[in-house]
Simulated assay, not measured.
Amino acid sequence: MASNHEEVKLFGIVGSPFVTRVDIALNLKGVQYKLEEEKMGNFSDTLIKYNPVYKKVPVLVHNEKPISESLVILEYIDETWKQNPILPSDPYKRALARFWSKFIDDKCLNAARKVAFSLDEKEREEGYKELEVAFQFLENELKDKFFGGEEIGLVDITGVFIAFWVPILQEVIGLKLFTIEKFPKLYKWSHDFTNHQIVKEKLPNRETQLAFFKARYESLVASQ
């Protein structure tokens, strides 16, 4: 455990799914930390000093040592604070958890970006199909209440984007993709996950996020 919260700092933006992942993991471990809020498009010199390669959030700074990239940070948190493990102890299950976390970033996030922010209708349609296929893979993979079993783990935390942000984007665009009819297990998972006490405490305000994406989508449509 961190003896005082000055030792652990998280540089991030409220409303970033990647930062929210780290927030959830630290909360799960009971680690006290200080959130250093950054401004979108106007990052501090400190952040750029800590993450000169990608120049983006989140960055976790533990005892003055910076770690970047949310999935790398999640593993670091799990190895540093042993309580409430995020990754399974079995090597095969660990490998699988890493595989599905990477799958969410590679397949779901990229497809969702196309659906939500592409000006090209063909590309949006392509993104929709990719997302549908990706969700079906996750639906088939989900065996328990959570991807981590009875408790939340790495894949669940990585999937916060699907559980919390996809329904918001869907509402903004008027999409009917992520529904209980199409993906019953994944849909139920999203509700169980976002209502989990550890997760709920760290999710950004839904109305604020909805307003933000509405404005962004409307300006996108207006620019066509």
Rank of each mutant, 00 (worst) to 15 (best):
Q136H: 09
D90Y: 13
P85Y: 02
V72I: 09
V199H: 09
D78M: 04
A215E: 15
R216T: 15
F103Y: 13
L28K: 10
L138R: 01
P184K: 05
K176N: 15
V31S: 11
Y54F: 12
L71N: 09
Q32L: 11
L26E: 14
A116N: 14
F161H: 03
F103N: 13
I24P: 11
L71A: 10
I86D: 10
E207Y: 08
L119E: 11
V133F: 01
N27E: 14
E151S: 05
E121N: 15
E36F: 07
E123M: 15
P184W: 08
K122R: 11
D156E: 07
W189F: 02
P17H: 03
L28A: 11
R206D: 14
T179I: 01
H62P: 01
D90S: 06
L186F: 05
D45V: 01
Q170K: 06
A95L: 13
E79C: 00
G153P: 00
K185D: 07
E126V: 01
Y128Q: 15
L210C: 11
S223P: 01
L10F: 12
Q224W: 08
E69D: 03
L138P: 01
A163G: 09
D78T: 05
V72P: 04
N51T: 01
E141K: 12
K34N: 12
N110D: 14
A116R: 12
E130P: 00
L109Q: 14
I162F: 07
W165L: 10
K145S: 05
V160T: 02
K65F: 06
K114C: 12
K107H: 07
V115R: 06
K182Q: 13
R98M: 08
L220S: 12
L35P: 07
L87R: 03
E123T: 14
F193W: 08
L74R: 05
Q170G: 13
G174D: 15
K49F: 01
E207I: 02
K145R: 02
Y54E: 03
I13G: 09
E201T: 13
S118Y: 12
